[in-house]
Design a protein around this nucleic acid. Structure first.
Length: 422
RNA sequence: GUGGCCGUAGCUCAUCUGGUUAGAGCGCUUGGUUGUGGCCCAAGAGGUAGCGGGUUCAAGUCCCGUCGGUCACCCCA
């Protein structure tokens, strides 16, 4: 019988790393609350078409990375590969346009992509993300970017780089696209294979190929920001002023494009120190067309997603993963089988007055119990043996001070509380 | 999806060019007399060497496949 293992690209999160998870998501939720965002939870699976329509059939996510399943009723479903489309779907489904606009939402949830796993890249990965729907003012973009930026900075990460770009809208993007295609048309034989493929599938992606040769060619390619129409150009200006006002450093990267089709105007990425070895920590942008793509009303939107595993990985790399030692208050060890029920009852009583208490389960030697109490980091150890049973007492030992007293069973809780508050 | 590297106890690693019952440290359990911790000492538990095939008198050590991890691509969070 072979032993079961986590499926490829999926991982267990063990107790000792939970504090990192809590720290990251805690910081994020706090920020969301401060900015007036409400949490939304959408299903883990949705109609596969929702995602295909949203991210585009040509993208990797829409084609080869989707975890699809046909259920017994014949529904063609997919595990959520990204967070934005479901949120926009929910906005439309629940008539959120009648709410005071814009609507601010955030989420913390797993995403699934059939990718080849690597450190910081998992088939099941968690994202914290936020979306603002119903407002196209670039101030929204500023707020979304600053929210996640400050969360990451607040966690202590250093060397982060924020890159922004604008890829235009339906008015100006076609012009740009044409210029780009014209430029690349004559250079196809100088480009790598992947880029030749991109030329027909998604020309914008030609810009962020990392091969030296292609990089050179991309360097001289027309830049989207030079083709922006008046509105888009103004929009970008407002975004930049807003970031400046918040003193958030950023770089305009004319070659920054995003993989998903639904983005318009603003796109951004936050890269970890030392470049993008394990990919970006956060990315997002504006998607004013998405709602219509998926059959909804015309609703402007702006949002981002940030990979929690990647953020944690970065905290560990920057030695910011120090664990706060969670110490139990008390450890109760029975020295004989007759003492077990008494010890169990006392444990229960201690918990009922709010003391974190570990019950030593089986009767063992005092040495055993104290060793265990010690390795658990317990502040107090309580020993109960036959001697105690006969005079109705227990031994309460302060593990740090190495002092010990014998008290009446009924006074144990009181005594321990006093010791802990000293 | 493409290419490279890696895969020995829970963890970190040894096992020289293939050769007897695969070792260590840490961790874990128990003990070091009469109910007492963190140090020290001792004993013990724990491995079909990821899995499957092949070569060989003999394989953890060589070859192939497969699964998993990892790095670079691809992609993205």
């Amino acid at each position: 019988m072979t032993r079961f293992k986590t499926p490829r690209g999926a991982r267990d999160r063990l107790p000792e790393e939970q504090h990192l998870w809590d720290r990251v998501t805690g910081a994020f939720e706090r920020a969301c609350r401060l900015h007036g965002f409400g949490r939304i939870q959408t299903p883990t699976f949705e109609s596969a078409d929702l995602f295909i329509r949203a991210v585009g059939e040509e993208t990797d996510i829409g084609s080869k990375e989707l975890y699809t399943l046909d259920d017994r009723g014949g529904e063609h479903l997919a595990l959520r590969p990204e967070g934005t489309a479901p949120v926009v779907r929910a906005y439309n489904e629940h008539g959120m346009k009648v709410r005071s606009q814009p609507v601010r939402l955030y989420y913390l949830q797993p995403h699934f992509r059939y990718d080849r796993p690597q450190a910081g890249r998992y088939r099941e990965h968690n994202q914290m993300g936020a979306e603002v729907l119903g407002e196209e003012d670039a101030s929204v973009d500023v707020e979304a970017i600053s929210l996640i930026w400050e969360v990451l900075i607040g966690l202590g990460l250093t060397g982060l780089e924020l890159e922004i770009n604008s890829i235009g809208d339906p008015v100006c993007r076609p012009n740009y696209r044409r210029a780009l295609v014209d430029y690349y048309q004559d250079r196809l034989d100088e480009l790598c294979q992947d880029c030749n493929r991109r030329f027909t599938s998604n020309p914008l992606r030609l810009l962020d190929c990392k091969k030296d040769r292609c990089l050179q060619i991309a360097g001289k390619a027309p830049r989207s920001i030079d083709f922006l129409c008046g509105d888009c150009s103004d929009h970008l200006a407002v975004l930049r002023k807003g970031l400046d006002a918040l003193e958030i450093d950023y770089a305009v990267n004319p070659r920054l494009v995003r993989g998903l089709d639904y983005y318009t105007r603003t796109v951004f990425e936050i890269l970890p120190a030392g470049g993008a070895a394990q990919g970006s920590l956060a990315g997002g942008g504006r998607y004013d067309l998405l709602s219509e793509y998926i059959g909804g009303d015309s609703v402007p939107g702006m949002g981002f997603g940030s990979g929690i595993e990647r953020v944690i990985l970065n905290l560990q790399e920057q030695d910011l993963d120090g664990a706060p030692a969670a110490r139990p208050d008390a450890f109760v060890g029975p020295l004989s089988s007759a003492a077990k029920p008494v010890a169990a009852a006392l444990s229960s009583q201690l918990r009922s007055v709010g003391l974190a208490t570990i019950f030593g389960y089986r009767d063992a030697s005092a040495r055993s119990h104290l060793r265990r109490a010690n390795s658990a980091g317990s502040r107090i150890a309580v020993l109960i043996g036959d001697r105690d049973l006969s005079n109705g007492s227990v031994s309460v030992r302060d593990m740090d001070k190495k002092t010990q007293t014998e008290v009446k069973l009924e006074e144990a809780a009181r005594t321990i509380k006093d010791l802990l508050t000293d």
